[in-house]
Amino acid sequence: MFKKLSVLLGVAAGLTMMASAYAADPIKIVFVGKNTGNPYFDSLVQGFVDGCDKLGCEFEFVAPATAEATSQIPFITAQIQRGVDVIATSPNSPDALNQVLDRARAKGILVLSVNGDMTGNEEHRDAAILPTDFEKVGADQVELVGSLIDYEGEIAILSATTEAPDQNKWIVGMNEALANDPKYAKMKLVATVYGDDQPEKSTTEMEALLSTYPNLRGVISPTTVGIAASAQVVQSAGKADTVKVTGLGTPNQMRPFIKDGTVEAFQLWSPYNEGWLASHFAVGVKDGTIKNEVGATFEVPNLGTITINPLNSINTQAGLTTFDASNIDDFNF
């Protein structure tokens, strides 16, 4: 059986040899997303597309159906097989991709972790393109909720999953800010709950928060599913005036809540710029104009001078962008 198969494959390979002879010059970049149907990544992909339009690289976006830890592996192997030059990925797991990414790098493929890092496994990727300095997200969010509640009263956090690495990093930052900055002395964090990034669970958790803490003044939800569910819940309960919801969300997801005043302000960064920067960085490293070394700097149109930070991580912007009624219509993602 094996013989038959290999003969067959041999013939097929012969037939298709000519096709592969063509692909040569432009740098081929592929982005392996977390999963399809995730609106957040539409904008990031657009950044890649525009970047490659300008720089003359080839770009493709692929993604598995589920954001499960292993689902990206066959896609990455397929890209290695396709002979791409750059694999950018938003890893679904901090460690499950280690082996396959090592294989990609052994073949000279530049491996970028985009929008999230492989915390603790940084040696398995070449560089990370992160939206902002994750160390400061927690403090920024506390400041935002504080400004909404006059720095006084009970607040709660509705996060994604208990082990979500980015969210946990931010929550640590929130706790530190609350504990150390005297400005927040009158604010009290009463609960941190997890909605698993599922609308149903997030909604139930948020409703339970409102019921358990009648004096609750503010909720930080640093995840797009969570903040949308929280906003929907306070809107339903008619408590938008007493409980201020904020966190990290996308403008398209939050637009109606900003328009009707349910949510006064929330934050995020620009996923578009991540794709834009990643494409410039990838092409630069590949053609030798950018050195992928800690401390090196390079220029990216519209973003200015970018520095490569320790662990080869790169931030697209310094702080978070705050969205409110005054500017939300300027954004579409």
Partner: peptide, 27 residues
């Protein structure tokens, strides 16, 4: 199986490679 192998080979020039197929089989 034969049809699929032929189809896949026509679909992508990168498919027909025993090592790659074996590696994919491990998944």
């Amino acid at each position: 199986l034969i049809l699929a192998t032929l189809g896949a080979s026509l679909l992508s020039p990168f498919f027909a490679d025993i090592a790659y197929i074996l590696e994919s089989f491990t998944y």
